[in-house]
Design a protein around this nucleic acid. Sequence first.
DNA 1: CGATGGTTTCCTGATT
DNA 2: TAATCAGGAAACCATC
Length: 253
Amino acid sequence: MLDSYDYSSCGPGLILYSPLSWPMLYEQLDWPNPEDYGVSNPSWTSILPEEWSNRHVWEWLQFCCDQHKLDANCIPFAQFNVNGRQLCSMTQSQFISAAGIYGEILYNSLHQSQSKADLPLVCDPVDKELHIDERTLNLEQNAGCFEGSQEQSIPAKKQAGLQSHHLWEFIRDLLLSPEENNDVLEWVDRNEGIFKVLKSDSLAKLWGRRKKNERMTYEKLSRALRHYYKTGILDRVDKRLVYKFGRNAYGWR
DNA sequence: CGATGGTTTCCTGATT
DNA sequence: TAATCAGGAAACCATC
């Protein structure tokens, strides 16, 4: 499946989000996984935020976690059990008090995205006037999500991993995407974030294809993984081909 | 343009 | 013996 797909057709700056990377939301909120009842197309990127459903709002939050490297544990997801219209009608102060420490980032992300896509702002006009100059975050890629419907032409199953800029995110998304994983990786302890590489050569090939580097090997890939030990993305596990997500990895739960 | 971060490449040596 | 692991060193490259 991956072999025949040309990622370059997606174009630069296009951010896609896979439904296969969202299970942490469903776990935290005790909601059923949408795939359990046949919903698999993430459409929040192609419709106006004020049209979002509650689920779209959560999908957007997950996207923000990845995009801005936010610790999902610090976001009170339960506070966001609202639809897009309710979300957009919040004043900035309401938003920040509901969203916790990342309130300002999330608020700016939401409203700057609308602004850059030349969509009407739907926030409180007082807040809009007060904070319009505060939209200083660099969210070019995020804005791109609202600009067109290019992603709709790409089958949902092809989207996993496209947003994975880094090796560990690529591996995380493979672990969360059973259909694409193809037994390359498996969880050893899902709760502890421990996983095993079952097909080292296949993993290297997949990563090499992702980076357009035919010379990638597991030897080199594993060196990159060992660099993660010092940054807390991975923790050492004293077993061959076994790794563990560390304190600074997110989105794998 | 320089600084920076995240690899990629290569390497020596140890372990399984 | 081959595969894997541990890191040092440096090159590479995209982004800021």
